[in-house]
Design a protein around this nucleic acid. Sequence first.
DNA 1: GATGAATGAGGCTTCATTCAT
DNA 2: GATGAATGAAGCCTCATTCAT
Lengths: 209, 209, 209, 209
Amino acid sequence: MAVDEPEGTTRRRAPRVDALRNREAIIEAASAALAAQGTAVDVREIAGRSGVGMGTLYRHFPKKEDLVQTVLRRDFSRWADSARRAAVDARDPWAALTDFYQQALTGYARHCAIMENFALTWSVPDLEGIQQLRLVIEELRARAADVLRPGVTTDDLLLLLVSLGHAVRVTDECRPHLWNRLLHISLAGLRADHGEPLPDEAAPALRLP
Amino acid sequence: MAVDEPEGTTRRRAPRVDALRNREAIIEAASAALAAQGTAVDVREIAGRSGVGMGTLYRHFPKKEDLVQTVLRRDFSRWADSARRAAVDARDPWAALTDFYQQALTGYARHCAIMENFALTWSVPDLEGIQQLRLVIEELRARAADVLRPGVTTDDLLLLLVSLGHAVRVTDECRPHLWNRLLHISLAGLRADHGEPLPDEAAPALRLP
Amino acid sequence: MAVDEPEGTTRRRAPRVDALRNREAIIEAASAALAAQGTAVDVREIAGRSGVGMGTLYRHFPKKEDLVQTVLRRDFSRWADSARRAAVDARDPWAALTDFYQQALTGYARHCAIMENFALTWSVPDLEGIQQLRLVIEELRARAADVLRPGVTTDDLLLLLVSLGHAVRVTDECRPHLWNRLLHISLAGLRADHGEPLPDEAAPALRLP
Amino acid sequence: MAVDEPEGTTRRRAPRVDALRNREAIIEAASAALAAQGTAVDVREIAGRSGVGMGTLYRHFPKKEDLVQTVLRRDFSRWADSARRAAVDARDPWAALTDFYQQALTGYARHCAIMENFALTWSVPDLEGIQQLRLVIEELRARAADVLRPGVTTDDLLLLLVSLGHAVRVTDECRPHLWNRLLHISLAGLRADHGEPLPDEAAPALRLP
DNA sequence: GATGAATGAGGCTTCATTCAT
DNA sequence: GATGAATGAAGCCTCATTCAT
């Protein structure tokens, strides 16, 4: 403890440089480990990969869950961002939508833990990060309203992303491009040239047109 | 003894013939537990729920994996069967396809462990049970060929099922009918009235139409 | 229960023929299993090999230990007998002794559980069966007294048997005749042509001649 | 902290450097437990005796087998060493041999697990530790060649050790010096004053002289 | 602040023994 | 009496978390 530090103080001091570096190392290692093995990954492995001891890891993240959330928020945001950027570069609203899906699914869908987490979107709707993605999708939907089948909501588009994300994960290793066909099919289904309204969420249709 | 035995009672102290009843109890309990918690469920919990001791459970299923496989094969088959039956009753090929998805997704998609297992479809393609489902889908596809978008394969339809199954699981508790809308969208995408060919699985399209 | 059986009677009735047959089958199976795997053998395996159920086995032998003791006594006696017979046929007292060892070690030394049990000879000296063997050895010793080194006791000879039995068991599979050389060496050491007295058992010699 | 630490205390809450102390405590406890109960000893008991938790034990030795091997190698080596030292101090080659056996049998022969392990000498001849012992015995044999019965091999001497080791173990508790007499007898049999050659290992003699 | 050793609850599995038919 | 299913106490091992240095 520094000599000029007043007793009993809790003044926030700038964190040590190495503490920051450690924190980053932990997050990077955790990101890789979570991507590869999902949230079931052993904390020891993360500590090992980051080159820090267990104590250090637990100083920065008192519970495994804290670390997982931190990493997932970061990775999730990056993912959402990369997908958003793909969309803004597009030449028209429809291309924006398709490029968005393409990038989102290509980019992070193989991140095991993101997919696990993404599945929680609806059970924990205020999940940080998801709002960001919602906003992007909402805007894409608004801009593409003319070419979208009437009644398609942001939730529909979000769920489609979750759904296709799972398809990607499932086929990534053995049939790496199969999901792309599914994306085409789904996107075709989103286009405006279909007459029937979509079923009301509150009243499940037992008969399909 | 047997005649005055009230129906539906008998738990604790199960004998000879009731080995079967125990076996069924174990399978039922395991089915419920696997559906709710996936394959990570504790064997003790299954034993507890079935009302049998660990030894009994392990007499019937020497390894946890044996029990899991037995239950999954059963549940998977039932699932596939119920979906198939929904299809055969349909009034036309297209309705057969849509009813099949409707039933498949309504029926068992909330079964955690089936979904885990189903996700392995492509990495372990000879997974028992999957062939049965493939055959059903293959036939549905053949019958509906006229109304299906050209180029749609059995694998596409199978992956769509896996993909929507995930959507069901994800939204089942909080938005129980949301997936239905996604199903409509995807089915619309499968219809014949779309001009462009689907992308070749071997050559990933970087640009979507 | 037979009609003419008086109430409350405990008159020993002749055991059923099949009960006897079962008992024998259990003992035979246990003998084989114990010989091969020692007392650590699974009771289930014995029941399986004998073709009876667990309940039958436990009716005849309420504890695993009871069965083990029964079998070992039988096998031990047979062993002792076969060794004794080899001795009585010998042409002279020394040959009787050597043939006895030869037969004893050749015959049953590969019986895992007998060896385990034989090791208990001294800690449970009234072990049934051991007395029989002691008598045989005592007689052999008496008859061979002239050619035996003075002071050699029955216990010495018995311990030599236990000791060599272990050597047999240890080398039986990979060097099946090595123990025979050790037997020769030991027997040579038992002959009369050595001057020094053997150390008193009560006073451990710290210095050897 | 270190200077005022009383010697020989410290149990519970062991730190950094004391990982070594813990490791040693585990090994000591395991050595005692293995000596007393053989390799069937419960891992929990070893942990309990060492005053560490299961986790600590498994940190140092990931599998029970690892701990067992570590301890046995250590104890075996110590045993072999103590026997070797007894031999080098002897006044002549014959005394070296006898002192070696005396020490080897006195010292560690009561170590259950070493005996279990030693019994595997021939089935796993490259068992670590055994080579060390072989070398010692080989040298003793060479030096004592003049007084040894012709044809006695290192394997003979090694098997004699195993064999007598078993005798020690068997009699250790109830007749603690009985084995000493057997050792005298065997050693007498090893001396040069016997005319007949030992039987060839490959051709079992059916008739003894 | 960093380190990594220590902890112990909890998971899978085996097997001697009991019990209902 | 026979049967074999049921029982449950151990036994081995893992891993999130805490703690002394």
